[in-house]
Amino acid sequence: MTKSDRLYGELKNRIIGCEPGSAFYSFRTIMNDYSVSQATVTAATRRLIDEGLLKPNTGKEMEITDEVLKYRQDAPPVVCLAMPHWQSDWYTFIEHHFFDLASELGYQLEVLRYDWRVGAPESLPQTKIDALVLVADSQKLTAENIRRMNQYRLPYVIFARDLAGIAVNCVGLDNEYAGAKAAHHLIELGHRSLAVAVSQPKSESIFSRIKGFRQFCELHGVGCEVIDCDIRSGDFSPEKVYRVLRERFAAGRPGFTGLFTLCEDSASGVYRASFETGLRIPQELSVVAIGQSWRLDYFTPALTALGTDISEMVRQTIRILKSNLAAASQLDYERKLVKPQLTVRNSTAAFAAIK
């Protein structure tokens, strides 16, 4: 341990016992009290400034910040929400729910945006962090990312991902149930020829949605077609879905009366293809999707969808993290799946009404 490391530790212990806004020692006072050089003081205080515990003042002294409150014995844990740096309604929903529930569930939230081209943050903020929540692109998450998360030696949960068979805590959507629920809704309306549009890049969650949909159809003797729109990571899915389905619809009636699309964004491609070919929704084609943004009510007709209960996912995530923080030893990993909720709007109708 270097002199600056020792000085950093001693100064940090002193700072934690002080009140926010109070003045801290000047460089000269620290040099005299600890018999160290100015270079040693500079190195130690720079770390404390980077951690947010100190901020330089215009005078010779430094000021203690509100960051010290996070170190109080009764302070709620600090949870770091690590999210890809990418503009997305989905990521915005997640962030808002974590902020909204922080007071109720008893945690402080720090948000970290990491490079979307990698599956996990390559470093963490130097401020106090007690636990991690990783929101990861399913196309980018690798074994190397999991190893990196383990190296941080903090409790963590992979959020909105179902990682069956992997030794990590994860909270995600019950994708098989989502597919089965979509099929159940359409079959309950009397449809007997269904299709699912593979409208997102292929991943375990997408395969699970398709599996749930197909199995429910098979159990009820209903025909099910899988339409692969060849969506890859980085593609604009509404455009690809539109092109595939427009060609299909233009050739005549599609051979199915109920369609399940795997995300709300791609549903706009379905709507455009049906509009341009004169296929009426829901009179001739019922459409159900997975999604929950405010835009669903502004589709014409409004889009029936299975929405993710993000609040429940946040609650389960914080429960897992707090259990791990309180435990004296490593707990068993948890895989918690949350069932989606169906909101029926105007894009689905009874088969008897189709003429």
Rank of each mutant, 00 (worst) to 15 (best):
L194W: 14
H185K: 11
L194K: 13
H184I: 10
K211G: 02
F207T: 02
I206G: 04
G221R: 04
E218W: 12
P201R: 10
K202Q: 06
G190V: 00
A183T: 08
A182L: 06
Y177D: 01
A182S: 11
G190D: 01
A195P: 09
E218I: 08
R214W: 09
C217Y: 06
G190P: 07
F213R: 05
A178L: 03
F207N: 06
I206V: 12
L194D: 07
H191N: 13
L186H: 05
G221N: 14
S208A: 15
F207C: 10
E218A: 15
F207A: 13
F207S: 04
S205V: 03
S208Y: 02
H184C: 09
R209C: 05
A195I: 08
V196H: 04
A183P: 06
A197W: 08
S203F: 02
L219I: 02
A182Q: 05
I206F: 00
R214P: 04
K181V: 11
K211H: 09
E204D: 08
S203R: 03
S205G: 01
V196N: 02
A183W: 05
Y177R: 07
A182P: 08
F216R: 03
S208K: 13
V196W: 02
A180R: 01
I187K: 13
L219T: 07
S205P: 04
I210P: 01
I210W: 01
S199Y: 04
K211N: 06
H184Y: 12
K181P: 01
C217H: 11
R214V: 15
V198E: 07
V196A: 01
R214M: 14
I187Q: 12
A195Y: 06
Q215W: 00
A182H: 04
Q215Y: 07
R192M: 02
F216I: 07
L186E: 05
